[in-house]
């Protein structure tokens, strides 16, 4: 069975991989590229654990065919920090105890980044609706929402 050659940019690096045409981007990122920070919670687009930015747009990688990634720019949680310098969202999640088991954390961080990229000063309600596609069963969302609001303040203050 011949596989399809995909060339894209992931987290700032040019990446090539081979995939089956019917494979999901989630499976390709995990199995073919080795980016295990992209998590699978449902495989049906209902939990957001596999969230990535594709050309800056928030997506569930479990709903994208791997060959669709050809020529795109992808960002996963592995690409959020600038070297050793954590993204303010990552730092605020740590300080705000916004994670317990951590399996949903990569998806929340990516979704929250997508929100703040578009809306640097969201209200609590806007944060809650923007993150509604990401399920967390540990925290009750309280500390996640607070951490996103705090990160928004920090990002605004440094710009």
């Amino acid at each position: 069975m011949s596989r399809t050659h995909v060339i894209c940019n992931i987290n700032g690096d040019d990446v090539e991989f081979l995939c089956d045409d019917g494979e999901s981007l989630l499976d390709a990122l995990r199995d073919d590229v080795g980016l295990m920070g992209v998590k699978e919670g449902c495989g049906t687009g209902d939990c957001g654990a596999c969230s990535v930015l594709m050309d800056g747009k928030l997506n569930c990688s479990c709903l994208i065919l791997a060959p669709e990634a050809n020529g795109t720019d992808l960002l996963t949680v592995e690409g959020m920090a600038d070297g050793d310098h954590l993204h303010p969202l990552q730092q605020c999640f740590l300080e705000g105890a916004a994670l317990q088991c951590g399996i949903c954390t990569p998806g929340f961080l990516i979704a929250a980044k997508a929100l703040l990229d578009q809306n640097p000063e969201p209200t609590e309600t806007e944060v809650r609706y923007a993150l509604a596609g990401n399920l967390c069963r540990c925290t009750g969302y309280d500390k996640i929402v607070r951490s996103v609001l705090e990160a928004a303040v920090q990002i605004r203050e440094t710009v």
């Binding site: 957001g48 969230s51 709903l63 990401n134």
Partner: peptide
Amino acid sequence: IGSDQIQNR
């Protein structure tokens, strides 16, 4: 239609 993730698709 769906979450912010879905809205982009």
